[in-house]
């Protein structure tokens, strides 16, 4: 080994020892930074800040691009989920409405159980024109439906069966101009006949009312049972106005039915009317 090499080795040993000393001196438990360290740290801090921010931006940009594909998939899935949920919600709403409608029908059936025997039927068709008012029901001869049976809903009188096939029945609505129903004004018991006008008007009129009958707007009209087709006491509608007939003997009242015939979906066919047992006093009886 040459002298020059010894010198190098010595200097290296000194350097190592120096570094070891510096390592010891700059351990975590020392009091503060050296001025040099402070200067380097403070001097580089802004550059570090900028670099780090830039690095974050780049990272976020790349990550967004990578995520975009996933987001589109996620968006598609969520949209599909919303569509399914919306349709379920609509279905639930339908069930709710159907439930309340059927409950109403059931209540009516129970309420009238001692008066009529009722059969439920659904409306499956309507008259295509504007003058006549008929509906077709999904019950027919096979279900025991017969001609001239009355048809009602909880709101009031609908009409009567005019034709029956094996599985359908055609019902003449009270708004049809061919329909006539024996009726009385509930308050005064004044008799008359409820006649349909053009079906599209949705109105009916009460004819053959005595001229001096006290008819006022708002009075309720019910069926009288005269004629034997319609049961008595079924609500028909309320009087809107009345006027004298040109002949001078009678007056005619315009009546708004309680039933909204355009929204009819389920109805009752009156298959039997129970007659109350009345014991008439016979002559000579005690």
């Amino acid at each position: 080994m040459t002298r020059r090499n010894y010198k190098k080795l010595f200097l290296f040993a000194v350097l190592v020892m120096l570094v070891v000393v510096v390592i010891r001196l700059t351990a975590l438990n020392r009091d503060g930074l050296t001025p040099m360290e402070s200067a380097v740290k403070d001097g580089l801090a802004p550059a570090q800040q900028l670099t780090v921010n830039f690095a974050w931006d780049v990272r976020e940009t790349f990550s967004s691009i990578l995520k975009l594909g996933n987001l589109m998939d996620e968006n598609k899935k969520l949209k599909e989920e919303i569509r399914v949920l919306k349709s379920k919600l609509n279905q639930l709403e339908q069930y709710k409405l159907q439930n309340s409608r059927l409950k109403e029908l059931l209540d009516y059936r129970e309420f009238t159980a001692d008066k009529y025997q009722l059969m439920t039927a659904a409306v499956i068709g309507r008259d295509p024109g504007n003058w006549f008012g008929t509906i077709t029901l999904n019950r027919g001869e096979a279900d025991g439906v017969q001609k001239d049976m009355a048809v009602v809903v909880p709101e009031g009188l609908v009409g009567r069966v005019v034709a029956v096939s094996k599985h359908t029945a055609e019902v003449l609505l009270v708004t049809d101009p061919r329909s006539g129903v024996g009726a009385v004004v509930q308050e005064s018991q004044m008799p008359g006949v409820i006649e349909g006008m053009a079906n599209s008007t949705g109105l009916v009129r009460m004819i053959h009312l005595p001229k001096d009958a006290p008819i006022k707007a708002g009075q309720v009209v019910i069926s009288s049972g005269v004629g034997g087709i319609y049961p008595s006491g079924v609500r028909i509608g309320t009087v809107i106005k009345s006027e004298n007939d040109p002949g001078g003997l009678f007056q005619t009242a315009e009546v708004k039915p309680f039933v909204d015939f355009r929204t009819l979906r389920d109805v009752f066919i009156v298959t039997n009317v129970y007659k109350p047992k009345v014991n008439l006093p016979l002559e000579g009886n005690e």
Partner: peptide, 24 residues
């Protein structure tokens, strides 16, 4: 149609038929 209904014995007031069915 209205006249044929009258001929068949179905009476619908004229103005009602005109303004609530025919014209609409």
């Amino acid at each position: 149609y209205y006249l044929l209904l009258l001929a068949a014995g179905i009476k619908i007031p004229f103005f009602l038929g005109l303004f609530q069915v025919i014209i609409p």
